[in-house]
């Protein structure tokens, strides 16, 4: 079996697990929305909310991502499935790419919900070009988050105290994504008078981040999981 076929099988399996358990729909998405509403309560001022909406969207995404990544690897370790995959000699890069792809699909769906929530709750009003830039930002950031989330999820999966270890390891590493995605989304939403053209360099940063962690994860995932 080639790498692509196995990666597709792994991604379909992860999405089937979510379709069966509906943890994202029933627990993670409501959690993310509650975070957004709480931000709205805490910053109960239209001007401030519109200005900080991009940062709030991505903070809510990152917090939710921690839950999704932990869930993704809890499923693997519940009955030793990840170990069984490695024992069976399944290509670790294919496992990494498949799990990353499934995580990206779930995160992207979550981000769509959060951007819609920002539209409703915070009153952001992007232009057509702004919506397009927001879409590209979401794609670039999601790919990077999917790769880095899977890599660090695999790293923490076998560790004692992994529930607390994962946020400690992952949040500092995704800081560039938070910064880049927030700046690009500010440009897309026109927050603080930013123009759409200001966002593209930040999207470039997100793309570089995604390429680096995609390549590093493909190489390092196997040895990390074996350890």
């Amino acid at each position: 079996m080639n790498r692509r076929s196995v990666a597709v099988a792994v991604a379909r399996k992860d999405l089937a697990v979510e379709a069966g358990s509906r943890v994202i729909v029933n627990q993670v998405a409501p959690f993310a929305l509650v975070v957004m509403v709480m931000f709205a309560f805490a910053l109960d001022n239209d001007g401030i909310l519109q200005r900080v909406a991009p940062g709030l969207v991505w903070l809510a995404t990152l917090f939710s991502m921690l839950v999704v990544v932990q869930r993704s690897f809890a499923v693997e370790s519940a009955d030793g499935a990840l170990d069984a995959l490695r024992v069976a000699g399944v290509d670790p890069a294919a496992i990494f790419l498949g799990k990353s792809a499934a995580l990206m699909v779930q995160l992207f769906a979550l981000e769509v919900v959060l951007v819609c929530a920002a539209f409703v709750l915070y009153g952001v009003e992007p232009t057509a070009a702004g919506w397009a830039e927001a879409f590209v930002t979401m794609v670039a950031a999601t790919v990077g988050l999917g790769f880095v989330g899977t890599l660090y999820g695999g790293l923490a999966a076998g560790a004692r105290g992994r529930e607390t270890l994962l946020p400690l390891l992952l949040l500092p590493v995704v800081a560039p994504v938070l910064i880049g995605a927030t700046r690009a989304t500010e440009a897309a939403f026109g927050s603080g008078g930013a123009s759409v053209s200001e966002g593209w360099p930040w999207i470039g940063l997100l793309a570089v981040f995604a390429v680096i962690f995609g390549a590093a994860g493909s190489v390092a995932f196997g040895p990390l999981v074996d350890e």
Binding site: M1, K13, A16, D79, G80, D83, V87, V90
Partner: peptide, 26 residues
Amino acid sequence: LLGHTNGLYLDLTVTQNIRFWASTVG
């Protein structure tokens, strides 16, 4: 190798589990 765990995905059905393993080898 069948060790102390079974390597199953507990949220998937029996058929889904076995189909997944089948898909890793075609």
